[in-house]
Simulated scan of single mutants.
Amino acid sequence: MAKHKEEKTNVMRILEQKKIPYTARFYEEGDGPEGTREYGVHVARALGQDPARGFKTLVARGASKGVYVFELPVAENLDLKKAARAVGEKSIELLRVAEIHAVTGYIRGGCSPVGMKKQYPTVFHETVLNYDSVYISAGKIGAQVELAPQALLDLLRAQTADIIVKD
């Protein structure tokens, strides 16, 4: 992947304001296969990262109309039933791509749990605590931040749960 212009994002500014240490990582947009799962794995490998430490952001709406944020390793798929149980909903469904910007302020592929329009209940897959540092979107395509998972959980007042599909 080619070198990307290093530009500070809102996510980075928030982390700095809260005095949370992070490392910015940049990659070229459009490098790699289409699709969240394949693209996330491709980006992680291109940056020399373990894909299990890279977390993608999925946003869903519950039966009660509440909005929830789920963070899971890039190579995994969200189990909707487990996710609904984790947030106390009967059921949830992922937001349509057309809704993502209006609800979060971010676009598909550049959605971060940090700095959304509102602070929604957030659940990370339980493996987040297995690592000294993890990677999340920095709020735009082509940028990630690496930081300590506990600092991220504390900032977002997030919980952890088993929310992925088991093979």
Results as ranks from 00 to 15, higher is better:
62 G>A: 09
137 S>E: 03
28 E>T: 10
60 A>D: 02
135 Y>C: 09
45 R>G: 07
24 A>K: 09
83 A>Y: 00
40 G>D: 08
103 V>W: 02
15 L>Q: 01
140 K>L: 15
158 A>C: 05
161 A>K: 11
53 R>V: 13
159 Q>K: 14
62 G>K: 08
107 I>F: 02
120 Y>N: 03
29 E>Y: 01
108 R>P: 02
28 E>C: 02
62 G>L: 02
27 Y>S: 01
34 E>N: 14
45 R>K: 15
51 P>L: 04
84 A>C: 12
115 G>R: 04
72 L>G: 07
130 N>S: 00
39 Y>I: 05
110 G>A: 10
144 Q>F: 15
36 T>D: 05
5 K>Y: 07
22 Y>M: 11
53 R>A: 11
15 L>K: 04
66 G>H: 07
61 R>G: 04
167 D>W: 12
118 K>V: 10
25 R>E: 12
5 K>C: 08
93 E>Q: 08
55 F>N: 10
27 Y>H: 06
139 G>V: 06
136 I>E: 11
132 D>Y: 00
76 E>Q: 13
139 G>D: 05
136 I>T: 13
6 E>V: 09
145 V>G: 05
118 K>R: 14
165 V>L: 13
69 V>W: 02
28 E>I: 08
161 A>T: 08
167 D>G: 13
82 K>G: 09
19 K>I: 12
5 K>I: 13
136 I>V: 14
156 L>Q: 04
33 P>V: 11
103 V>L: 09
133 S>P: 06
30 G>E: 00
138 A>N: 12
45 R>D: 07
140 K>N: 15
162 D>A: 14
94 L>V: 11
103 V>Q: 04
146 E>C: 12
56 K>H: 11
120 Y>W: 10
155 L>N: 01
8 K>D: 02
71 E>C: 15
88 G>Y: 12
91 S>M: 01
89 E>F: 06
106 Y>T: 09
109 G>R: 05
58 L>R: 03
